[in-house]
Amino acid sequence: MYELLAAPFVEFDFMRRALFGGIALALGAGPIGVFLMLRGMSLTGDAMAHAILPGAAIGFLIAGLSLPAMTIGGLTAGVVVAILAGLVTRYTALKEDASLAAFYLLSLALGVTIVSLRGSNIDLMHVLFGTVLALDDAALILITSIASITLAALALLYRPLVMECVDPVFLRSVSRAGGPAHLIFLGLVVLNLVGGFHALGTLLAVGLMMLPAAASRFWSPDVTGMILIATAIGMVSSAGGLLMSYHAALPAGPAIILVAGMAYIGSLFFGREGGLIYRLVPGRHLEA
């Protein structure tokens, strides 16, 4: 048991760092994912994750695999695409999902092209799938700072974010906080994706956000519960994925997302809140 669960982390520094990074990521990404899902923006998260790629790629082009350059590039690109997609939706006939799909395909193609201009295929793999087993101090500090900022900001914005999902007209009738809250929230999404990108790459960063969130919906009837469960699932997936990759010699990033994916599929079947089995075999009906 010890060999299976603890030894890899006790023996290897890079495993401990990866576990620490994964747990910190889950802290921020879990709640963000829950809100993305509740706001009907699950695909927005995906699109923004891709949008980060060209920015990070330009950072890479200028400075190589440098943390600050790629972070700043990714942040800038993420914010720009979020704003552009919003503008296109507001001022043209295109619905938001279509404009996001357009932006995300463009970003992906552009990003891959830019990385290939200078780097090798290995560099490309780094950018797309991350390097969770090679997180240095700077990256860990970045990830934990982002998680802290996220939790503090969400605590402050909790009311308007929930109210805007449930009853936007009501929120508008009592307050002007809805608009700014939404913008700050989008900013937090980009921040967390940039944090996740260093560990899991642009393609998988969103996985630790959406999979635990989607799974949590099957376990809790309220937002607080969902946030706690999503965060827990994210943390357990990080640990489980790292162990799986260690023992079975699998790539670590995809292993983490696979474990999260299994948690989702398990919840889909066994979840108490509208899971499949509960739906199909509900037991005999009650008196009242």
């Binding site: 449930v166 009853d167 936007p168 009501f170 009592v174 919906r217 009837p221």
Partner: peptide, 19 residues
């Protein structure tokens, strides 16, 4: 106008009136 699929209970919906 209210999103009835949102995971919220009656108490919290009513409590919004305290805004």
């Amino acid at each position: 106008e209210v999103d009835r699929t949102f995971p919220l209970n009656v108490y919290d919906l009513v409590a919004m009136g305290m805004w």
